[in-house]
Computed example of a mutant assay.
Amino acid sequence: MADELVLYTNPMSRGRIARWMMEEIGQPYRAEIVGFGEPMKGAAYKAINPMGKVPALQHGDTVVTECAAICAYMADAFPQAGLAPAPNSRSRGPYYRWMFFAAGPVEAAVASKAFGLEVPPDRARAIGYGTYADTMDTLEYAVTRGEYLTGDRFSAADVYVGSQVLWGLQFGTIEKRPAFEAYGARISARPAARRAAEIDDALMAEMQKQG
Results as ranks from 00 to 15, higher is better:
residue 210 Q to Y: 00
residue 70 I to E: 00
residue 75 A to Q: 04
residue 95 Y to S: 07
residue 36 F to V: 06
residue 83 L to D: 05
residue 150 T to K: 03
residue 110 V to G: 12
residue 22 M to E: 01
residue 171 F to G: 04
residue 126 A to F: 15
residue 82 G to H: 11
residue 42 G to H: 14
residue 199 I to D: 05
residue 10 N to V: 12
residue 50 P to V: 11
residue 59 H to E: 04
residue 196 A to T: 03
residue 164 Q to I: 12
residue 27 Q to H: 06
residue 137 D to G: 11
residue 33 I to V: 15
residue 63 V to M: 06
residue 146 G to Q: 10
residue 59 H to M: 00
residue 26 G to W: 01
residue 164 Q to T: 15
residue 32 E to F: 02
residue 119 V to F: 07
residue 7 L to S: 10
residue 77 A to L: 12
residue 149 L to S: 02
residue 54 V to D: 12
residue 163 S to A: 15
residue 208 Q to K: 09
residue 73 Y to F: 10
residue 88 N to I: 02
residue 63 V to Y: 01
residue 197 A to Y: 05
residue 168 G to R: 14
residue 146 G to V: 02
residue 150 T to H: 02
residue 77 A to T: 07
residue 136 M to G: 11
residue 208 Q to H: 08
residue 187 I to E: 03
residue 194 R to H: 07
residue 159 V to R: 08
residue 177 R to D: 07
residue 161 V to D: 01
residue 183 Y to I: 08
residue 192 A to H: 00
residue 82 G to Q: 08
residue 148 Y to A: 14
residue 143 V to W: 01
residue 153 R to W: 00
residue 161 V to G: 12
residue 112 S to R: 13
residue 119 V to Q: 07
residue 85 P to T: 11
residue 130 G to C: 11
residue 41 K to P: 07
residue 124 A to V: 11
residue 102 A to N: 11
residue 120 P to T: 13
residue 50 P to K: 00
residue 5 L to V: 01
residue 140 E to H: 10
residue 33 I to M: 08
residue 60 G to Q: 03
residue 81 A to N: 06
residue 91 S to I: 04
residue 196 A to K: 05
residue 7 L to N: 04
residue 39 P to Q: 01
residue 190 R to N: 03
residue 27 Q to W: 02
residue 15 G to C: 14
residue 105 P to C: 12
residue 157 A to P: 07
residue 110 V to P: 02
residue 162 G to C: 13
residue 81 A to I: 09
residue 85 P to S: 07
residue 146 G to S: 13
residue 86 A to Y: 02
residue 95 Y to N: 02
residue 77 A to S: 06
residue 17 I to L: 09
residue 153 R to P: 06
residue 121 P to Q: 13
residue 34 V to W: 00
residue 32 E to T: 05
residue 105 P to L: 01
residue 55 P to I: 07
residue 77 A to W: 01
residue 17 I to W: 02
residue 97 R to F: 03
residue 120 P to Y: 03
residue 122 D to R: 15
residue 198 E to R: 10
residue 4 E to W: 03
residue 107 E to C: 05
residue 198 E to S: 15
residue 8 Y to W: 03
residue 27 Q to M: 09
residue 199 I to Q: 08
residue 143 V to T: 08
residue 95 Y to K: 06
residue 202 A to Q: 04
residue 167 W to K: 11
residue 207 M to S: 12
residue 189 A to I: 05
residue 54 V to T: 04
residue 145 R to W: 10
residue 142 A to C: 07
residue 140 E to C: 03
residue 10 N to A: 13
